[in-house]
């Protein structure tokens, strides 16, 4: 009897800790509407072909990984606009160091992770020590990274060895490696946020810096940590992209609009831009919504410019679907 209640309690606690964000309802709606439109207007592959479902997730991996990092930064009431060019510099540097040789892979990964840590550290230091608004600080570092990339590279550079393509194209049984990595990163993000002191402090810093400071949180360190984590997710995302493209190019990051898209998916997932509220599971749903839209538009053969129009409308509607009920006014 008692054992049953304890497992019951455990389950309840687990259910409470997972707590499905409301954005999943919107995710299901988008999926159903997309699938029905596909059924009526096209060949109906979304509902019938499981490969398409898998493809939706694979398409979301690059954005999903960096969006996890963005979520942490935004929970800390900061923002990172430099992720797009961090992705670019990762893609191009790793492919440059690898030069198609398997023995260089480790050096390349260590090298770009070091670059990522450095970028995150600089972002964090500018925001916390120089008190520059994070929007402007990371806009500035983004310009700096862009300049460094464009001064050194102008086209595809180097190449990735066959062995490294495992990251982008490999399969473990029926599941692509990339999906496993995405889920792993989401899990790490969730673990950091809800199972560590760092996470608790980050929510505190995002909610109210002064209160957090007065209760003994080293606010600067926490925020710098979040920025380093965010830049590292951008690096992992860049590594994934370069393994898919087989060679790095300077336009990888900005072409994917990873900066604004990662922010949009984070907010769609229910994380407040003002900080202190949110989580990575919502962000994952936001990313999947983007993936479903992309696939649906491709299935229906929508004009690429109209795609952008619909995407704009849907981003706003997705966020509106839960903000409309909130009593607080938005800014």
């Amino acid at each position: 009897m008692t054992t049953i209640t304890t497992t019951d309690n455990k389950l309840k606690r687990l259910a409470r800790s997972v707590r499905i964000p409301p954005v999943y309802i919107f995710l299901v709606v988008v999926f159903l509407v997309g699938g029905i439109l596909d059924q009526i207007l096209s060949d109906g592959q979304i509902f019938t072909n499981p490969l398409i479902l898998l493809n939706i997730i694979v398409r979301s991996v690059a954005l999903g990984i960096v969006a996890v990092g963005q979520t942490l930064v935004i929970i800390g009431a900061s923002i990172d606009l430099s992720v797009a060019y961090t992705i670019s510099i990762t893609a191009i540097m790793s492919s440059y160091i690898m030069q198609g040789k398997t023995e260089n892979v480790l050096t390349a990964i260590v090298g770009v992770l070091a670059i990522g840590i450095a970028i995150g550290l600089v972002n964090g230091l500018i925001v916390t020590k120089l008190k520059v608004n994070p929007f402007i600080a990371t806009l500035g570092t983004s310009l700096i990274i862009k300049g460094i990339i464009n001064a050194s590279f102008s086209n595809y550079t180097g190449s990735v060895p066959k062995s490294f393509e495992f990251f982008g194209y490999g399969m473990v049984g029926p599941i692509p490696v990339s999906i496993i990595i995405l889920l792993l990163i989401v899990f790490i993000g969730w673990f950091l946020l809800s199972r560590t002191q760092f996470g608790a402090h980050l929510y505190g810093v995002g909610g109210n810096v002064e209160v957090a400071r007065l209760s003994g949180v080293r606010t600067d360190r926490v925020l710098i940590g979040a920025h380093i984590f965010c830049s590292m997710t951008a690096v992992i995302s860049g590594l994934f992209l370069v393994s898919q493209m087989r060679a790095g190019a300077p336009w990888v990051g900005p072409n994917g609009i990873f900066d604004l898209n990662s922010i949009a998916t984070t907010v769609i997932g229910g994380t407040a831009l003002s900080g202190g509220k949110g989580g990575v599971w919502g962000t994952l749903a936001g990313v999947l919504i983007f993936g479903i839209l992309d696939t649906t538009f491709n299935q229906l053969g929508v004009n690429p410019y109209l795609k952008s129009v619909f995407q704009g409308v849907i981003i706003v509607l997705a966020v509106a679907s839960y903000t409309i009920r909130s009593k607080k006014d938005a800014a």
Partner: peptide
């Protein structure tokens, strides 16, 4: 009540 950052990002697209 959508934050203006997101509203105008959508409008930009």
């Amino acid at each position: 009540k959508v934050p203006s950052f997101i509203t105008t990002l959508g409008m930009m697209l």
